[in-house]
Amino acid sequence: MLLFADDQDNRVIVTVLGKDKVGIIAGVTGVLAQVNANILDISQTIMQEFLVMVMLVDISRCHVDFGTLKNLLMAKGEEIGVQVNAQHEEVFRFMHRI
């Protein structure tokens, strides 16, 4: 069982959902860059007029703890008018894979 192995403990999924507009990715990735969180993968689609963005982020060298990072991301989301979530990767691995 790989659960809670160190490398996975440090990987979080950041999701962004909202009306598409200029500057969403710049805003969110700006926050991640400031705290030294490394984006490993990024994908985005537009569903109807909504932007759906998913990022896999490595926070092992992040300057702040996960709770603080979450708050920073949510504050940024509010500022630019999108919903930003951050959760540990295990949640998705566990729910959809056995």
Binding site: T15, L17, L56, R93
Partner: peptide, 15 residues
Amino acid sequence: MPLSFSSSEIYETIR
């Protein structure tokens, strides 16, 4: 390392 699940799975969880 790439994402190992699709964004629709991720959004299902969040929903």
